[in-house]
Design a protein around this nucleic acid. Structure first.
Lengths: 323, 323
DNA sequence: GCTTGACTTGAAATGCATTTCATTCTTTAC
DNA sequence: GTAAAGAATGAAATGCATTTCAAGTCAAGC
């Protein structure tokens, strides 16, 4: 495979000149320019991207750490990331962590190895110290609220959303309000926030009103079966994620209860699912978060930007369409 | 930042020895090994990944070209890809094409630039010649059936699935069978296959039974409104994707028709949606396709592997849950 | 006619790690 | 006791492009 040396030799110029043509520097004589271009075409030459990365010390690549890719809640976020990165001529390395701390921290070392210019964290298990320890080698931006200072982040105002949802449900006079979550409160900050928001708004607490380990439709069905197995039915349920909500709705039906007649449900992420089934859902504007996270990552500023959520109620026509 | 030279100097050995320690070669004296490791720790040293890539001529990175990331039909596929790639110690560059040929072919040149070892194509607009022209620089595997030889691929047997669905509907005695598709038949091979399968199985053709430009829930509602606006209602509808099917079901309801009583519908991709709404869906086993595509990409074999689909009927209990 | 500034060009240093080749020193084997 | 095999190590070549520095040409300006 041809390299810059071959091109230089065949064009009868120095490699410096070839490099100048390659990078469209001014001050290269027209005839040599054309000659070099002709030779490059003839030899079917391309720069070696790794040589460029090596000498420039820059890769134009960012890493995005996600737990998995089969949870639709990351679709919008990643889409925003891809869009903005493409706009700014950066490429995106998708790094699945499977929520394993060892894997996550191995990804952070990609910064030290100069293989990426920065990292975007979505949901993670990393401790702030782990992040800060590596951030001297490249910028790390978090797409969730980070408990410590110094970690730049663009994040949804989850706590405000939780408060808003619980308040809304409380004001409707509901007594039995269930809610679900993903990882347990020890590993997940958002689960802790959820519980905290609950405690700050709802006074009536009872057993079996909180269910964690909910991630997808099947989990929703599973906890739905727990919720509806006896005759005491919840007035309302606030789920993490629309898929979980959908699973609960499906489970409720098999137990003879129906969403809207017998209980209210509010989901999260505002996916097509909530639109289709007609339940309200909290939209965290993840596309915007993704875009702004990339912008922040590639800027040299420090910021902690909170993106305002929106509690999305469905038009009744849609809601009734499937009931 | 410390490099291998610094480590060598401080440890009092040659860079060759440091490299040996780094790569765990045998034949390095224990004491020097320890000294080198100590110095590496002291200097907080990491290899420069780009230097390694440059000299080894290998990146351990593959590129995955996808049109977008906000269509859930790629979730399973990408998840399979990520999983297998991680297993084989490869990293994944996610390359959004927005269905633009220029962007797609620019990604192919990443191979020439040695920035990735191989490319996985999902849905694409590239012509076979474009693919073959670049495949001398690295392996390109297609996750859809490729019309020409020489392009290794792992793909769903869409045509067989289409035939199966249409035959199933025909055998039920239906006369009015609508079907939908995404891109028009000129740009999309699968749309062509769909039409061909229809022609080979169904004899009764009529106007307005085929609708393209369907991609999501809204499109489903849109074409649903067209299907149900007059009193002639289809017996069955075969959609591309579960979201489109859901949109049609929603639209039908607003027109006073209901899925299962008045018409049958079959979706695609077997997402939670079809499970929730209780309509059958074709599962192409995209996770398996993704995994095998990565395996094929990283092997030195040529193959065109067809993955068998499965027409997934729903248990009546689920199906009735929401009706 | 000479200075000055605008162009044009190439040699060489730089970024960093891998690997081959040659060399030296030990063992083991017969 | 000597040949053969094993262990340990470094010098130097290699992969490839960017960029600085120095030096050259040429035309405009006084």
């Amino acid at each position: 495979m041809a390299n810059i040396k071959d091109v230089a030799r065949m064009a009868g110029v120095s490699i410096a000149t070839v490099s100048r043509v390659l990078n469209e520097y001014p001050y290269v004589a027209k005839d040599k320019q054309e000659k070099v271009r002709a030779v490059m075409k003839e030899l079917n030459y391309s720069v070696n991207g790794n040589a460029v990365k090596l000498i420039k010390g820059k890769t134009n690549t960012i890493g995005v750490i996600v737990p998995y890719n089969n949870n639709s809640c990351y679709d919008e976020l990643i889409n925003g990331i891809l869009k903005k990165a493409h706009e700014l001529h950066y490429q995106v390395l998708l790094l699945p962590s499977y929520y394993e701390n060892v894997i996550e921290s191995s990804y952070l070392t990609l910064l030290k190895k100069k293989m990426i210019d920065g990292i975007l964290l979505t949901s993670h298990t990393l401790h702030p110290e782990q992040i800060l320890a590596l951030s001297e080698w490249g910028k790390i931006v978090c797409c969730e609220a980070c408990p410590v200072e110094h970690v730049p982040s663009v994040f949804p105002d989850r706590f405000a959303a939780y408060i808003e949802v619980f308040t809304y449900l409380k004001n409707k006079g509901y007594n039995r309000i269930h809610f679900t979550s993903g990882r347990d409160f020890q590993s997940s900050p958002s689960t802790r926030l959820r519980i905290q928001a609950f405690q700050e708004t709802i006074t009536v607490a009872y057993e079996n009103q909180f269910f964690d380990q909910c991630f997808d439709y099947q989990d929703g069905k599973r906890v739905g079966d727990l919720m509806f197995r006896n005759s005491i039915v919840p007035d309302a349920i606030f789920t993490n994620g629309d898929e979980v909500a959908a699973g609960i709705i499906a489970s409720a039906q098999t137990h003879g209860y129906s969403y809207m007649q017998d209980f209210e449900i509010i989901g999260e992420e505002n996916t097509p699912l909530s639109e289709i089934l007609g339940f309200p859902s909290v939209d965290y504007h993840q596309t915007a978060i993704g875009e702004q996270a990339v912008s922040l990552l590639l800027s040299d500023e420090y910021a902690r930007i909170q993106i305002r959520h929106q509690l999305n109620f469905r038009a009744r026509t849609e809601a009734s369409a499937l009931s």
